[in-house]
Amino acid sequence: MAVSLNSYLIVSAILFSIGVIGVLVRRNPLVIFMSIELMLNAVNLTFMAFANALGSVDGWVFVFISLTVAAAEVVVGLAIIVAIFRTRKEIDIDEMNTLKG
């Protein structure tokens, strides 16, 4: 028998939560960025699972588009991180805390 939709969703939820924990816990912006990729992919998995369950390829289109957007986002995000590193010579996200009350 086939694997139920809910199993995929549970895996997706777990991966997403791992990504959340990464964002909250890690201080290296690169690792935080990776965690965000993890969360994106977890969502992609739900799209794929639903597409399969519904017998539709529409979910694939969403995944495809989110792949390209993720690529664009990574390009810009990494460029920003590099630029920050270039000016501040450090790579702890907690150093960037001037936005406080």
Binding site: V23, L24, V25, R27, I93, D94, M96, N97, T98, L99, K100, G101
Partner: peptide
Amino acid sequence: LRKLQSGYARNYAL
């Protein structure tokens, strides 16, 4: 309340 505005991006994510 301004203590909430810590400046740490991770706090905001939390």
